[in-house]
Amino acid sequence: MQTVQIGSQPITLKRKTEHTVVAAVDTSSMKIGETPKGMLITVRGACVWKQRRQYRYLRFGPFIFHVTDENKRDVYNALRGGFSVSPYEHNNNSSPSLLQMPTRIASFLERWQHTMLSKTVTDGLILFDGSLTSGVADTSTQQMKKILDEARKRGNIVLAFSKMTNLRSNGYLITDVLLGHKPPYLLQIAGLKPKPPILLLGDVYVARFTKGNYSFRLDIDKEVPITCQIEAVEKLLGNDLFSQSYPETLRLAHIFCTFTANEVIAMQRFIVHKFDLKIINRPDMHKLLFGPFGKGENAS
């Protein structure tokens, strides 16, 4: 948990309707089953963009991986090599635990999609899901910097929306601090000092775009001048639909990559038919031990 300061004056925003492409990326990962040796993971990514009042999408996947203790390092390094923007980045022999593998593989796919969008969109707004923090396990600083540089070169501005945040001001989550100010507005966040090697590549704001108690942490590429950052948000307001302060393009990206139960059944069927893998149903120990008081492994 980090304590930060919130700007005392909100930045009031005006919708700018001049035509700007809005593009968004999201990925989903899921464990779809267990085998006697390991687990079955599926990942899928979605790019959605709004151009001339119409939404379009490009979906990648689902990609299914059978990860075991024996092959996890090979799988991880192969994917890191395949998706990495710089060859010098994948010289690490370590690999995450089996349980971390789904999110790590999804991160590779997400960064690759970020790279592709930054190289193909011109003078647009690119929306990421999450923050612009780098130097963490699945996001190297070099890779993130490269993505932002590429985007900037083509006149794009990257904006990252976080649905959850740990940042607090005076003990309150920054997204819970609601002013009596009429939306849309931004609140600038200052005093955020991440511990090395974590690096913050964006300026952080609290964004509240619509009526109702919804606000999000918004990171905007810090290499972009503040006036341009604010203008980018105003263009976003003028070019995308907003419901509950969240941009529709990013919502669609999330919707398109999410796995439904029906798809999970279909993938399990595909695996059983195509690879003759036996999916085992392990008993839920919570239910087994605690009966009606066991709410399952996923319950908190």
Partner: peptide, 28 residues
């Protein structure tokens, strides 16, 4: 299970289907 979400996903844009492409190498 999930069929409702599946149908909703295919019609999110004011009743008009969102156009796009799927890169589905495993043909799921």
């Amino acid at each position: 299970p999930g069929i409702f979400e599946e149908l909703l996903r295919s019609l999110p844009d004011g009743g008009e289907q969102v156009k796009g492409e799927d890169f589905d190498p495993l043909e799921i």
